[in-house]
Computed example of a mutant assay.
Amino acid sequence: MQRRTKVLTGAGVAVGVLAGVGAVVGPRIYESTVVAEAAPTLDAAAADGGLPDPATLDGTWTVGDGSFAGYRLEEVLGGEDVTVTGRTEQVTGGVTVDGGALTEATVEVDLASIATDQQRRDDYFRGTAIDVATYPTATFVLTEPAELTAGATDARLVGDLTVRDVTRPVTVDAQIASAGDTVQVVGSVPVTFEDFGITPPDLGFVKVEDTGTVEFDLALAPAAG
């Protein structure tokens, strides 16, 4: 009994949502530190001066290399606040700009490839939390046109986020800028785990907040053809 008590006392749990979105919980998955990635921001070259005349961006754009999406969550572990991030570069999709407005957008994230700094956490995320064998992707689909403004970077993207076959309306606070032939879109949206059928654990030694954040950084290139 004494040995079992020591094992249980040494267990750790984490939970996450993605893309963006995920939840992670598992025994004995923590090392002495947790490494969290910085929140995505516009590149200095892209942010300088904001967007050009939005009409010059009319056309179809494809999510390209350098894009990523993932989740960010807060938890209390052993009495200390901990930030956990999970990310993947397996992001696909495209957007359409028409008349200087973002009129269509679909982004799909491969949930099985989302990774943190802990393999055991990732294994639990892909299995118990999300069940990527059944629900391999998360998607965002724009449902309202988003007006773009020359010289500005802020944009409000209204759409549907689908995770584990659950679709919820969301509003994304985004920033959009261009550098050369590439358009960069970064943003985040708060999510509540239970809205997507994910219950964050509270096991005493670790407590995960009820909400997290889906975040992304998209590098858009003109569609071929």
Rank of each mutant, 00 (worst) to 15 (best):
V84S: 02
T5Q: 14
A46E: 01
Y124G: 05
Y124N: 01
I176T: 10
A23C: 10
D98F: 10
G70W: 01
L218I: 04
R121A: 01
G20Y: 06
A112N: 02
I176W: 01
A36H: 05
V208I: 15
G78F: 11
G26Y: 03
L51F: 08
E147R: 11
R164V: 09
K207T: 15
V191A: 06
L102Y: 07
Y30P: 00
E144K: 15
T137S: 09
V63Q: 05
R3W: 11
E75I: 04
E37T: 10
A36Y: 00
A155Y: 09
G187I: 01
E194Q: 14
A115P: 02
T192D: 09
G86V: 04
T137C: 07
D160C: 10
P27V: 14
D117R: 04
P201H: 13
E89M: 08
E75G: 09
A155Q: 13
I29Y: 08
R156G: 14
R120C: 03
I176C: 03
V107G: 01
V183M: 15
Y71A: 09
L57M: 11
A152P: 00
R72A: 06
G212T: 05
T128S: 15
E104V: 08
T103R: 08
L203I: 15
V141D: 15
L42M: 06
G26R: 02
V166R: 12
G225S: 14
E89Q: 14
T56A: 11
G159S: 06
V141G: 07
R126A: 02
A221K: 13
T103I: 07
E89K: 11
L218W: 03
V172Q: 00
A177D: 06
V109H: 03
E104A: 15
A47T: 04
Q119E: 10
L8A: 12
T128Q: 14
A174H: 04
D43H: 10
V7G: 11
D48V: 09
T88A: 04
V109I: 07
A39R: 09
V206E: 10
G100D: 09
G50W: 02
M1G: 12
A11D: 11
T96K: 12
L77S: 13
G64Q: 02
F205Y: 12
G94H: 04
G49V: 08
V132Y: 03
G12D: 01
L18D: 04
D43E: 08
G225M: 03
D123T: 08
R126K: 12
D173Q: 14
R28G: 10
S178Q: 15
K6G: 13
E215C: 04
T149V: 15
E194P: 10
Y30K: 07
F68H: 12
P169H: 15
T149C: 05
G159T: 06
D53E: 09
T88K: 03
S67P: 00
G70V: 02
E147G: 13
R121H: 05
T92A: 13
L8S: 12
G20H: 05
